[in-house]
Design a binder for these strands. Structure first.
Lengths: 338, 338
DNA sequence: CTGAAAGCGCTTACAG
DNA sequence: CTGAAAGCGCTTACAG
């Protein structure tokens, strides 16, 4: 094995196939006018030589990279892996590849920006909870479209695809109401997000409209271990509500654990709980959590569709899409009597 | 906003800075001999014009892409997200970026291979449980080095970085022995892997050596929901062991759930459990699982170091690295009396 | 330390 | 339908 990586180019293929280099090039561009006969010859030569068109050379002339930057979540939330898979495979089906933009590393380190932008990503999908301001500025500077996935960061002008959080909040309120609940709480995370606020508002306004009582809103750290003490403090108070709607499944499970192990509460008899996301653990025997399922597959498909459309048609309008979330009933809520 | 993406090139910068294009190029190559004075001039011009060197053009001449392909896990295991973050940020620190290779999509669809290889990744990090055979062949064909992260697929010749699974297995056996256990089981997943087998062998041989009894080995689906019935069947048998060492934390938690909710067993009194991976849920109040912590950060660093070294020095030797895993004692095991 | 020029491997008008 | 040639934006000997 020698260290000389000899690359097979279109020239080599051309020679073997007995055609010109431009013809070889055309064969690998979908929709070019090439006769079937030469096509076959070229394919055979290419196969014999193990030829792959060089995407860098192509990008240089076409001025598009077929690369989409992916800003991925900084948290260790189980749902995220799936997101990544979905997005990257959707992308691939349209001929694009995903390049990771690791923002969490040097969040405010200016050096990381040029680094990734040297690759001239055609667009960016931001699946991170916090859209870094400098990333956003950078994209704007270079006229690179962004689409936000499952979240929207305040003050940014970009397309986004999210679940219909407001309606989900309303549904949670209706559910609690129909199972006879009179007092409720919304447990939110410590980092305010638009999607979260929507959920809260849908929930609170609907619950108020139905029962006349406004739910209390409490805040806890998104991290399980840190959330425990916030939750403990709340659950041990006198005015503990009958039901809690939580911003994430993680939070909901923390509530369940504290309620059961520290407050001796039975779920759902003493306390009903609804979560959000439908992470795998919600099915576990210890939890059996009633929760909202976000249609991540659909979200990924739409996000990819939007970014690719913007890239290909140089379409700079902002598309905002909402996908319904559906309630998955399990064991942490009582039966509704409508 | 018009749709013409006018790209600033080194020529533009050269003109503004009053130097030649080659000089501009040199300024952006670390270690080139350029006077401080011209460097400053060039930097200023570049900044004023918002210039970024074009990585594609560079790759074309240098014949290296600074892109590392990342084959990522197909399962929804919570630890994986962290892996991705670690790898991609380590990579970035060395001037490389990660491109996602979504194998799980069209596993056997030949079309996906050329697609990604058109970008000429300099190397590949495989963090997937199952190293796809065709990916492996493809890399070999193009002389692209691979390093396997936290796993090694049978029959492939490539570098890898894994935890010292054999020793971990031994430690688990010693732990059980020291807490008075006489009968034990190893719960393995349904997909055989080298790392898993190592663990099993370390555990079984050591336990046998210490107690004279060989642990029984049982198999369950890696997926929680599917694993339940395998575990149930086993736990309800007469010869239930006193302790179980599990291939993953997920499996360990499934064991705990079935033991508690279906067999009325108390942990660790009736059954001791040790898991593997130290996923976030191990800390949860419902589990408090004793488990092995893999040093993922270290694994990521080493994997990146190896691949970058192989790329830069065209070093085609296979490096096999083992990092110790450490036991994290929590509440699913009894105190040891040594 | 700096510049002029060739070349990396493609795509794309332009002729035919 | 096909070929010759220019050009994409860099890097890198080669001279000076």
């Amino acid at each position: 094995m020698n260290s000389v990586k000899q690359t097979i180019t279109s020239k080599d293929v051309a020679k073997l196939a007995g055609v010109s280099q431009s013809t070889v090039s055309r064969v690998f561009i979908a929709g070019s006018a090439v006769s079937e006969k030469t096509k076959t010859k070229v394919y055979e030569a290419a196969k014999a030589l193990n030829y792959r068109p060089n995407a860098f050379a192509r990008s240089l002339t076409t001025n598009e990279s077929k690369l989409i930057g992916l800003v991925f979540p900084d948290a260790d939330y189980p749902i995220h892996m799936k997101t990544l898979q979905l997005i990257s495979s959707e992308l691939q089906q349209l001929g694009y590849s995903a390049v990771l933009i690791p923002w969490m590393v040097d969040d405010n380190d200016q050096h990381s920006i040029p680094n990734i932008f040297q690759y001239r990503v055609d667009g960016v999908i931001a699946a991170s909870a916090t859209l870094n301001r400098s990333l956003y500025d950078e994209c704007e500077k270079f006229n690179i479209p962004i689409v936000q996935y499952a979240r929207v960061v305040e003050g940014t002008k970009s397309s986004y695809v999210i679940s219909d959080n407001y309606s989900a909040g309303q549904m949670a309120a209706q559910y609690f109401y129909q199972s006879g609940v009179n007092s409720a709480a919304y447990l939110t995370g410590n980092v305010p997000t638009f999607t979260n606020d929507e959920r809260e508002q849908g929930f609170c306004s609907e619950f108020k409209a139905l029962t006349g009582h406004l739910p209390i809103v409490i805040e806890a750290n998104y991290d399980y271990c840190h959330s425990i003490k916030d939750i403990r403090q709340f659950l041990k108070q006198d005015n503990r509500p009958e039901a809690i709607f939580c911003a994430t499944d993680n939070l909901a499970m923390a509530v369940m654990d504290v309620a059961r192990f520290e407050c001796n509460l039975t779920i759902p008899e003493d306390l009903q709980v609804i979560g959000f996301d439908n992470i795998p653990q919600t099915e576990w025997l210890s939890y059996q959590l009633t929760t909202f399922k976000q249609d991540f597959k659909r979200l990924a498909q739409e996000a990819v569709k939007i970014i690719v459309d913007q890239v290909q048609h140089d379409n700079n309008s902002f598309i905002k899409l909402m996908i319904p979330a559906s309630l998955v009933e399990r064991k942490t809520t009582k039966i509704r009597c409508v």
